[in-house]
Structures are given as C-alpha cells and as structure tokens.
Amino acid sequence: MSAAREQILSGIRKSLGRGPLDETGMAPIRQRLQAPSRHIIPARVNLDAEGLVALFISKAKGVSASVDEVADMAAAPQAVARYLIKENLPARLVQAPGLADMDWSVAPTIEVRSGLAEEPDEVGLTPAVAGVAETGTLLLASGPETPTTLNFVPATHIVVLRRDQIVGPYEDAWDHLRANAEAAGSQPRAANFITGPSRTGDIEQKIEIGVHGPLRLHIVIVER
C-alpha cells in the first residue's frame, strides 16, 4: 500500500492518541454499518398514504415541478402527449428501456425512441424508485433499464411515478433502493435525488430555473 496511505492513517491515530482499533473498538463501528439506524425523522411525514401523496404534490409544485395524475399506466401516454402540446414541445422523446411496457398506440403522433439521451434530445421519460413526500423529491437509480443521461441531458424531464411509490422520508426511499440492490446483487452506479428542475442563484442572487440540467420537470402520478 502507498506510503501516503500509511502515513495518513498513522497520523490520524497519533493525533487521536491511540493505535489501530482492536476488535472491541471496532464492534460499535461494525454494528453501526451493519444495521444503520435512523436519526430524527421530521414529524411532517406522519401521514396516511393519501396525506403523503398530497404532501408530495404540494412540495413538488413548490419547487417548480409540474404534476399530473392519471388513473392507470394505460392513460400515461396521453398525459405525456397533453403535456408536450401544452408546453409547445416537439412530439418526440427518448424513454428509459425500463418503460418498454408503455403502450404508445394511444398517442400515435409521438415519436418514441428507447435508450440513453444525447444531444439534441429534448425530452427524456423515466420511471423512478420512489417519491419522497418530505420535500417533493424523486429518487432515481441508474441501471441498464434506466440510463442516467435521461435525467440530465434533455431540457425536459418527465417522470412516471406510481402512487404507491410515494413515501414519507428519504430513509424510506433509500430502503427501497437498498432492497432493489440486494435483489440485483449490486448497487446502482448512480442514485439521484431530484427536487424540481435545475436552478441557479449565481447571478445577483436571482433564481433562474433551468441551467445545465432540465428546464422543466414534469411528474405523472399513476394511481395503480
């Protein structure tokens, strides 16, 4: 191992006035890592499922995302089509391979490609792992079915979220991701907590929505 590594580790121990931790010293650390415990969870998420959905929607709107609700997956393509027309966007999008089940025959005017996003793709459509009601945040994970570029390259990002994916705190969302990772045998390369479209306050503190990431974030909530 590198000399720098050894010197830094021994420097830390010297400063802390002890040697390497023995088994007894390591026990609390192992325990903390094996069974991570939650800290304080904000009381604002102590709500039933209905309440969490309402909180999620109001928080998401509060950070300049737009939200639509549809009855089922079959109705999602039309909701997407409506949104594209309303925002005067081209009838063309790239969708995550994970959404292959979506039946676009009900919205035949839309040109749909499946895969990652590149320039000059303008609209990306993805699923999510969870919606966090606490702050109207989405959790997305990368994978072969869900390339990360879809979340960042196109100027418009549309997310399809099932109602039962809406949870209270971030910790619940992360537990979903942990469970998926365990099932898949590996963690995702990237997990993105996304709260509204990109923004900056870098010029005279004036908030501008839409910088390098998406200018628009639209969330389609599917009842079942």
């Binding site: 990368s142 994978g143 390369r189 993105n192 709260t195």
Partner: peptide
C-alpha cells in the same frame, strides 16, 4: 433540499448504457 443530491458509486456497470 437542493435540486440534485447524487450518490455515485464506482464506474459504469457492464450492462449500463452510460
């Protein structure tokens, strides 16, 4: 909460597209 909180873990997996 900030707009993007990104948790990165290693390089692209073999089957990942990006």
């Amino acid at each position: 909460f900030s707009v993007y909180t990104t948790v990165s873990n290693g390089p692209k997996r073999p089957a990942d597209l990006d």
